[in-house]
Structure formats: C-alpha cells, structure tokens
C-alpha cells in the first residue's frame, strides 16, 4: 500500500502526466468511433465541470444552473451560425461572453444572499431558460430544437471527422485546464477561496469579497458558454432536452465526486460520469439508481470526493469514524488488559 502511494507522489507527477498525454494522443488511433465520441463528450463535460468547480468548489457557491449557461452558449452559437452565417470562431467567443453575461446578471442578486439561496436562484434561472427556449418558437423552434448546425470550421479547416474533433477538443480542454489552474494558484484564486472559507476574514485583509464571487461566477459560466458552442457544432443538433436541470445535477455530481476545490478532480469527475453509464448499460432498467447509490456511498466513505481535500469537507466519512471508533476501542481494551495484569 505504501509503495502504491509512493508511486503517485509528487516525485512521479511528471512521469504520470507524460504517460497520460501519450495515451490521450495515441487513443484516437486505436479506438473505435464510438469510443472517440465518448471521449469527446468527456472533453465537453470537462469544460462544464471545470467552470462549475471554480464556482462551487473554489468559490463555494452552489451553482445548480450550469446546464442553462451551457444552453445559452449553445443557442447563441447555433442561432448566429444558422441565421446569420457568422464564422464559428466568432460564435464561439460570443457564446462564451453571452453565458458569462448571464452569469454576471445571476450572480448580482446572490451577493446579498447565502449560498443556499444561490442554489435556488440558479435553479430558477435554469427553468426560466428552459421556458424561453421551449416557447420562443420563431427563434429557437421550441421543443423541435435547432438542426443542421454546420460542423466546426476554423481557418478554412473543417472539423468533421471524429478524430479531428477529438484533437480540437483535447487541445481546448488542455488550454482551459492550464489557464484555470493558473487562476486558482494565483492572487485571484486565493482570494476566491479565502472568500469561500470566511468572507469577513477575507475582507479584513482587503479582499473585495463581492468582486471575487462575481468574478468566479463569470469565469465559470463563460466556460459553460464555450462548451455549449462546441457541443452545438459537434453534434449539429440541439434541443431544450440537452440543457435540462438533470444535466446541471450531473455536472454538480461530477464536481462533488471529483472533489470540490480540486481542478484535476473536475476532470476525473467528468470522465467518471460520462463513462459510468456506458459501462453499466447491461444493467438495463436497474441502472437508473446506480448514480444515486454511488453518490451516497461517496458521501459516506469519502465526502471530500476523489481528489478533494479533507480540510474542505470538514466532517469525515463514516469509514474514518469507524476507524476512529475501532482505535478507541482497541486502546480501551489494551488499557483494560494492562490494568488487569497490574491486579494480577
């Protein structure tokens, strides 16, 4: 066990990263198209969960509307391309900005409220968004959705094959991951986390707490907007069903399982929740509950998620508690034995 732990220590980090990269680059050449599509879906969810991680994990604001921001991006990009023939790169940027603007507007009323209320407001935003896209027939075509969105085209190159899209998204995820990680490990990222841990304490060292809450929200939702634009052009078809509340919940689950407050965790969480349903397909109807069971098991045994830090989860899981109880019991037994020997 100790040796396994050692293998994953900081010393070998470079090695594992390099290995992962080689695998990721080699993967499309040895996998089927279906597998490539699964990987590409993971990449899109990575963007969503990274954004949500900054909001919920680092800033501690419970964002239950990430799918709606995703939808805003997707619809903006799709409508711009279908109705006005705007080139993809521009749609991509505007989709990010549009989602970020929505994030900004949603986060303003939240400054005066607790985290719990923020989850209500983002939930409300999620349903308002759905109501609009379902009913604004002339623009969004309602439940029928938008079809025939052209594939991604950048600088004259069409990303239509599964492999080319795979590499494009891999590149975007890597860049976004590096940037997000840089933000988290900077003055801004520390201020965001400090605000989460103790807002008044943060203000007492000159951190403008409100500013950083809004900033985290805007950055996180901008990423969702980017993901939306990519998704729309990648699949070529979007409908309100892609952006329902359930999707927000899934993104939240990705962050929780991955470990709130850990950027790499958001990637692992995304991979887990995209791959898991594929793996348990043979379970047929019974599979609906599996996600829930996994969540409960995590909350019991590892509340901080796969990569999250114990300090953030505060309370420990049942496993830890049992271990503690066991240790106490052992100590008491030893003490009793020793006392018994003394008497004899």
């Amino acid at each position: 066990m100790e040796q396994i732990k050692k293998l994953f220590s900081a010393k070998y980090k470079r090695f594992w990263l390099a290995l992962m990269f080689v695998c990721l680059i080699a993967a499309p050449f040895v996998t089927s198209n279906l597998q490539k599509r699964v990987m590409t879906t993971i990449f899109i969810y990575c963007l969503l969960s990274m954004g949500n991680m900054l909001i919920s994990g680092h800033a501690g604001m419970l964002n239950m509307g990430q799918a709606a921001f995703y939808g805003v991006g997707a619809y903006i990009a799709a409508i711009m391309q279908l109705n006005y023939g705007v080139p993809f790169i521009l749609c991509f940027i505007v989709a990010g900005l549009g989602a970020g603007l929505c994030g900004f507007l949603v986060s303003i009323p939240c400054l005066r409220l607790d985290t719990d209320f923020l989850s209500l407001i983002t939930t409300a935003f999620s349903y308002i968004f759905l109501a609009i896209v379902r009913n604004w027939m002339s623009v969004t075509r309602g439940p029928m959705g938008l079809t025939a969105i052209p594939p991604i085209e950048l600088f004259g190159y069409k990303f239509s094959g599964a492999t080319s899209i795979y590499f494009l998204l891999l590149g975007i995820v890597v860049v976004c991951y590096i940037l997000m990680n840089n933000i988290v490990n900077s003055r801004i990222g520390r201020a965001i986390q400090a605000t989460r841990d103790d807002s008044i304490g943060a203000q007492s060292v000159g951190v403008k707490a409100d500013l950083y809450k809004v900033l985290a929200f805007v950055i996180g939702t901008t990423l969702a907007g980017f993901a939306g634009a990519l998704y729309a052009s990648y699949i070529g078809y979007i409908s309100p069903n892609n952006f329902v509340y359930d999707t927000s919940l899934t993104i939240m689950q990705m962050c929780i399982i991955g470990g709130l407050g850990s950027m790499p965790g958001s990637i692992i969480g995304a991979a887990f929740f995209v791959v898991m349903p594929e793996l348990i397909r043979p379970l047929a109807v019974y599979r609906v509950g599996v996600g829930g069971i996994i969540m409960i098991a995590f909350m019991l045994f590892r509340p901080q998620g796969i990569l999250g830090s114990r300090a953030f989860a505060c309370s420990t899981g049942i496993q830890e508690k049992l271990k503690q109880k066991h240790m106490e019991w052992k100590m008491r037994k030893q003490r009793a034995e020793r006392a018994g020997e003394g008497v004899r």
Partner: peptide, 10 residues
C-alpha cells in the same frame, strides 16, 4: 477576530 476567521481549507 475573537472567533478566529482564518481560511481553514487553505
């Protein structure tokens, strides 16, 4: 502060 206001998870 009287009741510590440090950043516990940092």
């Amino acid at each position: 502060f009287q009741n510590l206001r440090i950043f516990k998870a940092l």
